[in-house]
């Protein structure tokens, strides 16, 4: 492993590593929800942690979570403004029943396509909250904390996402 040189303490480095371990995936996912691009998400998560390192002396542990999301949001806002977002979510293989017919598989693929298009069409704010809840499994209050929002706002966005998706499919979610 490459060790950075320069003026920092061992504690700083292990603190940084712990933050990285805790938040790397969720920040990367978040960047993906916002950009719909694996490459961009990888770049953003990289930049987010670099930025965190550079401002480490002024970072407080109780706000670092929110800070990471804020940095990510700002980076994306600045660099990828008005970019058309197209999703290509991976579908986990475990849910695919091997015994299922080829027909069922085809219909499932079709459903996935429709779902991803539907997700792309709902507002960013509603989508990222919905995906953080459904994919990352964050509770509303966890999302609220991370995005520096009130729980009420998260609820509102969540129900907006559900309403829009329901309108698209006609199903209860």
């Amino acid at each position: 492993m490459t060790l950075p040189t320069g003026s920092y303490s061992q504690e700083e480095l292990s603190w940084f590593r712990a933050i990285f371990d805790d938040y790397y995936e969720s920040i990367r996912s978040f960047a993906y929800y916002k950009t719909g691009s694996v490459d961009l998400a990888d770049d953003v998560v990289q930049e987010v942690f670099l930025k965190l390192w550079n401002i480490r002396s002024s970072v407080r542990n109780d706000t670092v979570k929110t800070l990471l999301y804020t940095i990510a949001t700002n980076l994306i806002k600045n660099h990828f403004k008005h970019q058309r977002v197209v999703y290509n979510f991976q579908v986990s293989k475990s849910t695919q029943d091997e015994a299922e017919s080829a027909d069922a598989n085809v219909r499932m693929d079709d459903m996935n396509r429709q779902l991803q298009d539907a997700l792309a069409s709902i507002p960013d704010a509603a989508r990222e909250v919905f995906l953080m809840n459904r994919i990352d499994g964050f509770t509303y209050s966890e999302i609220a904390q991370r995005l520096n929002l009130s729980v009420k706002t998260v609820e509102k966005r969540m129900s907006e996402a559900i309403r829009l998706l329901r309108n698209k499919f006609g199903y209860k979610l």
């Binding site: 060790l3 991976q90 986990s92 849910t95 459904r134 994919i135």
Partner: peptide, 28 residues
Amino acid sequence: LMDAIKALQVPPSTRSKEDAWNMIMQSI
């Protein structure tokens, strides 16, 4: 649809988490 939502996953990165960490250390 519920299955599809449950199955949603963020596509994996082209690099491993450890690679990502090393890249950050390299940049620093």
